[in-house]
Design a protein around this nucleic acid. Structure first.
Length: 579
RNA sequence: GGACCUGUGGUGCAGCUCGGAGUGCACGCCGCCCUGUCAAGGCGGAGGUCGCGGGUUCAAAUCCCGUCAGGUCCGCCA
């Protein structure tokens, strides 16, 4: 149990913990002046703020302190006079009287107000992040993150996992995400890279006999940033030996559900599973948001012999929008543009009215086709049916995206709905050179029932890889790894990676596997995203102390910046002219 | 690499469609008044390269072109 008062040589308790239980005591508190309310020469109220909250001090008006001055106030905790209690303040029953105010640091007025009411542009917040994080919301978010970290760590230790730190300076493995590169001073012309994840390191630890490893690990990827993606992010990285997929689900579920319970006060039920194929078919995505229904429905059967050109496609899928018949024409046009932007040839819409289907296409449909559309998902009067006819995957993905645009509640609303997505395809397609591309990474174990198709029908091969999805966000992914040399070499061969190339890229891992590789599997949970959802934030920057902008700059430090001539010389770098 | 949105005193916004004096609102800041406030109140005041550059025009915050910065998304993220 943490010391409630957090006393130090300079203070006796935190501002927010000054309450009735200490009435009558002479105490000192330290903090920032949140607000000053003057009433003439001999009365003023100071609101003193620290990370725990605010307490009111009654002081002589002659004290010259301004907003954000850092002060130490020594006063007597007193019951507030009748009629002056403030029930909006946790400390509103008491106040400090007979105060002595020591100015520890004067302060200029801050560039923006530190209260929850003012909505400040993120550009300004990021430039003065050290002021921004004084705000209650940022304090809450970053402390929530610390609590989640501690809970995850404790859950892994409880399950017998050993935390091992792995290097930040690692060897390039040109595969997957673009790596950040670090030039070597002692070996000019050669480079380290910062790890995209500790993937290979943790597999080596399995060979090394650490049969339950975890790490709260920083990962770095030099890819474009998004609301849910920064250059550097933090994962609960997990790997275990002599396990199956189900064991991994059990370990990771325990940790994530512990964190959820601590963060939300409520322990979610057991996490359900859904295959990748089902997720795509029902929700048009591999990361379904299950907070709301609106499943996709397949109408292909009703349109096999259609005369309507727009519906002559391998797949015809439909989405029912409850109450959507009142969408305006311009809203429907916007949705149509959105669908086209995602690769659809068009978007057909049908309003369910008392006079039947209302749509520009309605008069072209056969009665069977009309009936199929009107019957989608038990459609009711006032609903809207959206239809996309295309290749299967396109039809699913386009309607899946529209489903989110139309139906998804804000991040901060609705229940937390976790789901494991299983049986991803092993290969996600073919690159320009005609080589297969791994969906996860080349060490992912194929589904044992599908081994026979690796050569004959590789795109049909399912893998033993899996994602954890929360409210439409991919929280993390993992897989059972290949520990058998014969299977690994068939996979490399399917990927068009020669023995020589495999040795060159992953030689030290493959070499290690010769010396006794246990069957193993792992997972990594994105902590930034997890905490963001717990905090009700739709942007991970809100749970990161010092995040970068979308263009990868740090508005506070000015990074990235030039280095000195001396540094350039030491590293023996030279620069190509700008193109 | 691409699409879209935003940029106006310290902060947040309005003004921009239909060009006419840096016009307005709220907060903050500074000064004065005020002995129970807590989004304190009253009076007064300071504070501007309308992101930047170019163009159109008698005249540009406003229209056009370019550019920079921030954001959302597509591509990218094994």
């Amino acid at each position: 149990m943490t010391d409630k008062y957090q006393a130090t040589s300079m203070r006796d308790l935190l501002c927010g913990s000054v309450d009735r239980t200490v009435i009558g005591q002479r105490i000192s508190v330290c903090g920032w002046v949140a607000k000053r309310r003057e009433h003439g020469e001999h009365l003023a109220f100071l609101d003193l703020r620290d990370r725990s909250g605010i307490v009111q001090a009654v002081v002589d008006g002659s004290v010259d302190v301004r907003s954000e001055y850092v002060v130490r106030i020594t006063g007597t905790v007193s019951q507030r006079p009748e009629g002056t209690l403030n029930d909006r303040l946790a400390t509103g029953e008491v106040e400090l009287t007979d105060c002595v105010v020591e100015i520890l640091s004067a302060a200029e007025p801050p560039p923006f107000q530190i209260d929850e009411r003012s909505d400040v542009d993120e550009q300004v917040r990021l430039k003065y992040r050290y002021i921004d994080v004084r705000r209650e919301k940022m304090q809450r978010n970053l402390r929530l993150r610390a609590t989640v970290n501690a809970t995850l760590r404790h859950a892994m230790e409880r399950q017998g996992f050993c935390e091992v730190e792995t290097p930040l300076l690692w060897a390039p493995t040109p595969e997957g995400a673009r790596e950040f590169v670090v030039p070597s001073r002692l070996h000019p012309g050669e480079f380290y890279v910062l790890p995209q994840s500790p993937q290979i390191a943790k597999q080596l630890l399995m060979v090394g006999g650490f049969d339950r490893y975890f790490q709260i690990a920083r990962c770095l990827r030099d890819e474009d940033l998004r609301a849910d993606r920064q250059f550097e992010f933090t994962q609960l990285d997990v790997e275990a030996s002599f396990v199956t997929q189900e064991d991994i689900f059990s370990f990771v579920s325990a940790a994530v559900l512990d964190a959820a319970e601590v963060a939300t006060g409520e322990r979610p039920g057991e996490i359900s599973t859904m295959t990748w194929a089902e997720a795509l078919d029902r929700f048009g995505t591999d990361k379904p948001d299950l907070r709301f229904a609106m499943d996709l429905h397949d109408l292909s059967g009703a349109f096999v012999t259609t005369q309507v050109k727009a519906f002559s496609a391998p797949t015809v899928k439909a989405l029912r929008v409850p109450g959507g018949a009142e969408f305006t024409r311009s809203r429907l046009d916007t949705l149509t543009e959105h669908a086209k932007g995602l690769g659809a040839k068009g978007l057909a819409w049908f309003r369910i009215t008392s006079d039947g289907l209302d749509s520009p296409l309605a008069r072209f449909l056969s009665s069977d086709e009309s009936a199929a559309i009107a019957g989608v998902d038990d459609a009711q009067l006032g609903d809207l049916i959206l239809v996309v006819a295309d290749e299967y995957v396109t039809a699913c993905k386009v309607l899946g995206a529209l489903r989110l645009v139309i139906g998804a509640p804000p991040v901060s609303q609705g229940p937390h709905h976790y789901v494991w997505i299983t049986e991803f395809p092993l290969f996600e397609g073919v690159d320009e050179d005609g080589h297969l591309v791994s969906a996860h990474h080349p060490f992912t174990m194929p589904h044992l029932d599908d081994l026979e198709w690796i050569e004959s029908d590789p795109l049909k091969v399912r893998s033993q890889s899996y994602d954890l999805v929360l409210n439409g966000w991919e929280l993390g992914s993992g897989s059972v790894r290949i520990h058998r040399a014969d299977i690994q070499s068939r996979i490399f061969s399917a990927l068009g990676i020669s023995d020589e190339e495999a040795q060159n890229r992953f030689g030290f891992l493959l070499g290690a596997f010769k010396y006794g590789a246990p069957p193993h599997a792992g997972f990594a949970v994105g902590i930034d995203r997890l905490v963001a959802i717990f905090a009700g934030e739709d942007n991970i920057r809100e749970v990161i102390a010092f995040p970068k902008t979308q263009s990868g700059t740090d508005l506070m430090s000015g990074a990235p910046k030039n280095i000195t001539e001396r540094q350039i010389r030491d590293l023996r770098l030279k620069f190509a002219p700008k193109v």
